[in-house]
Design a protein around this nucleic acid. Sequence first.
DNA 1: CCCTTGACTTGTA
DNA 2: CTACAAGCCAAGG
Length: 109
Amino acid sequence: MEEKNFFERVYEVARQIPKGRVTSYGAIAKSVGAAKSARMVGYAMNSAKVLEDVPAHRVVNRNGLLTGKSHFGDHSAMQQMLTAEGVKIKDNKVQDFEKYFWDPVKEIQ
DNA sequence: CCCTTGACTTGTA
DNA sequence: CTACAAGCCAAGG
């Protein structure tokens, strides 16, 4: 994985999230080699949300809660996109989060 | 250079 | 179930 910038790694992982799946900031942080920097993942996502290649809407917190929805502009945009992809959302939370969870550490090496 | 803030996580009560 | 604290790293004032 060489020495890429922290943000770049986060972007790459986010880009590889399959449609209809979701992951957590901590999982991404771990996959990029910074499990203790989950905050940085969210920070990176904040900057990545302007990029079309980075599906930030597929990234939620460890509880499956759509913590980033407030940063999407419309509080329903994130939920709508996930729902459109097949992910059930209820009260800003992912239903059956474990079932939809996509682990980058296992999928990426 | 110091302080604050932030799309987080985990542990403890 | 909720509430609070500590750890973590980066960017901006």
